[in-house]
């Protein structure tokens, strides 16, 4: 009987869920695929090349940095770098020069993630760090938008719905916004796809529902009040909800686990903060779109939110 025992000593509990961190990352990638496909449908090969380029660059950068830091290189395959690469590509204009894509992806992984210590330690959403860098370094490239050109080769320059409204006062039909048949970033134009994928993500408990819900409610209320005050100057809430990067940001960027709060009440404040900041930028600021900056801005507050929204211990008065 003796040889039947090969005992391990371990602290309890002795069994656990099958869910693992790489699994969460790969499910997120799977749910980002519809947006990638939509992007490729609207913007053809150009979009596909940029998504793949950003993905490969992100993985390579992760590999090189782990080597430089003399760490185990297995995190390359945990899916987190791949998520960053794909998310970054989805927020880029479809005609962005390829060199810019590479730079953005390198910055996202290196400065946005590895310099903080790798997975789990970054304060900001890495993909948005990459995008913010590109916005600052190549402002013209980052604001050159085209109409969806499918697999045609000639593209026609056009404004995004938000830009068009802000600068020229042109509004865009709601059905175009929800389906995604407008100018904009590769993966952010089809609100309906993003909402479906986002809801699946929430049902799988891989994103905190409180964040997108509080963002959407805040934006609706903010825009609703403005629209009631002056319907000509301000669009209705639906326009603000379905245009630009709001949906992609709310469901896939703000809910990034690493850079969002861990306390329930903190998540709500985080979402409300993003909603307010994005509307302030869009309505009163100099830029037509502010989703990226509002998320990065609220990321700064996460440690503070975690500290001040610590839940009350059971039985504590």
């Amino acid at each position: 009987m003796e040889n039947k025992f090969n005992l391990i000593l371990e602290s309890s509990p002795h069994f656990k869920t099958k869910r693992s961190t790489p699994q969460i990352m790969y499910v997120v990638i799977l749910l980002l695929l519809p947006m990638c496909i939509a992007g490729v449908y609207f913007f053809g090969w150009a979009a596909l090349i940029r998504i793949l380029l950003s993905l490969v660059t992100a993985l390579l950068t992760e590999f090189i940095f782990l080597k430089l830091r003399k760490k185990d290189i297995s995190p390359v395959f945990d899916g987190s770098a791949a998520v960053t690469g794909i998310l970054l590509a989805l927020t880029l204009p479809p005609t962005l020069p390829l060199s810019d894509v590479v730079i953005g992806s390198v910055v996202a992984i290196s400065i946005g993630k590895q310099l903080f210590g790798g997975l789990g330690y970054n304060i900001f959403n890495p993909a948005l760090v990459g995008r913010a860098f590109l916005q600052a370094a190549f402002p013209v490239d980052m604001t050159t938008w085209v109409k969806p050109f499918y697999f045609n080769l000639d593209s026609i320059t056009s404004a995004t719905p938000l830009g068009g409204f802000k600068i020229d006062g042109v509004s865009t039909a709601l059905n175009k916004l929800t389906l995604g048949n407008t100018g904009g970033c590769i993966g952010e134009t089809s609100a309906i796809l993003i909402i479906i994928a986002g809801i699946i993500l929430i049902l799988l408990k891989m994103a905190d529902w409180k964040i997108p819900v509080s963002i959407i409610i805040t934006v609706s209320v903010f825009a609703g009040i403005l629209h009631l005050l002056d319907p000509v100057k301000y669009q209705d809430p639906l326009f603000y909800l379905f245009s630009g990067g709001l949906m992609l940001g709310a469901f896939f960027m703000a809910t990034d686990m690493v850079s969002s709060p861990i306390t329930p009440f903190g998540s709500i404040i985080f979402g409300v903060g993003i909603g307010i900041v994005v509307m302030v930028i869009r309505v009163f600021g100099g830029l037509p779109e502010g989703m990226m900056y509002s998320i990065l801005f609220m990321n700064c507050f996460v440690p503070l939110l975690n500290r001040y929204t610590k839940p009350k211990i059971f039985g504590e008065v």
Partner: peptide, 25 residues
């Protein structure tokens, strides 16, 4: 035997702690 990864702040521990602690912290 599952490999240990870095904490990704997923808040599962916070969401399931019956004593309302923040275990990861």
């Amino acid at each position: 035997v599952g490999k240990e990864f870095n904490c990704i702040n997923c808040a599962e521990c916070v969401n399931h702690c019956p004593i309302f602690l923040v275990p990861t912290k």
